[in-house]
């Protein structure tokens, strides 16, 4: 596979990789770095790519693993994270009252979900993958994914209902 063919293969889903990375890493720059890293890794094994059933699923799995590794190493090296969380949640509490942009709200709620639920929401509700594909990418059973998805959606609903009612009352 030469460079042009590789870019042709990769371009339909490179945005998906980026959005998945951004979902997990939050920062746009870090997500861009992660996506580039994954694409380069993919390029270095381009001889074996044609043997794969789905390059996209492979790339999604690689992105997921890379981002989770990044998060793990960041957390291990940062002991003040607890304090940061505390101040962060205070700030968002203030924003909660002021923020009229509900779309941002949804993003914040999703970002507060556990990583696995974030991944599933991202892949199902945003990228609209079939459960079968998500199961392959995450190496989990479809039933587990449905349960986690339902849980994540219900969490979003709960928080949204709360803020919705807060706005009214």
């Amino acid at each position: 596979m030469n460079q042009n063919e590789f870019i042709k293969t990769v371009s339909p889903f490179k945005d998906k990789l980026f959005r998945l990375a951004k979902r997990l890493l939050v920062s746009t720059e870090e997500a861009e770095d992660a996506t580039q890293e994954v694409l380069v890794k993919l390029w270095t094994r381009n001889e074996t790519l044609s043997e794969l059933k789905s390059v996209e699923a492979m790339a999604m799995t690689m992105t997921k693993n890379y981002c989770l590794d990044q998060l793990k190493s960041k957390r291990a090296g940062n002991m003040t994270i607890v304090h940061n969380n505390y101040t962060d949640s205070q700030a968002s509490l203030q924003q909660k009252i002021e923020d009229v942009d509900s779309l941002n709200w949804v993003e914040k709620i999703i970002n507060d979900l556990p990583e696995q639920q974030k991944l599933i929401i991202q892949m199902r509700d945003i990228e609209q993958y079939e459960f079968e594909d998500i199961a392959k990418i995450l190496d989990m059973s479809e039933a587990t994914i449905r349960v986690a998805l339902s849980r994540a959606r219900k969490t979003i609903r709960e928080v949204m209902t709360k803020t919705h009612n807060y706005g009214i009352g």
Binding site: Q3, F6, I7, V10, K14, D15, L17, F18, R19, K22, E32, T35, Q36, L39, V40, W43, S102, L103, W105, V106, E107, I110, D125, I126, E127, I156, R157, M160, T161, H164
Partner: peptide
């Protein structure tokens, strides 16, 4: 009405693109 932003966000989030170049 309360669900509107949730679905709105999903559509909006899907529009985001990867703009950096691919460093091959």
């Amino acid at each position: 009405q309360q669900y509107k932003p949730v679905f709105g966000y999903f559509s909006q989030a899907k529009a985001e693109e990867f703009k950096a170049e691919i460093p091959l």
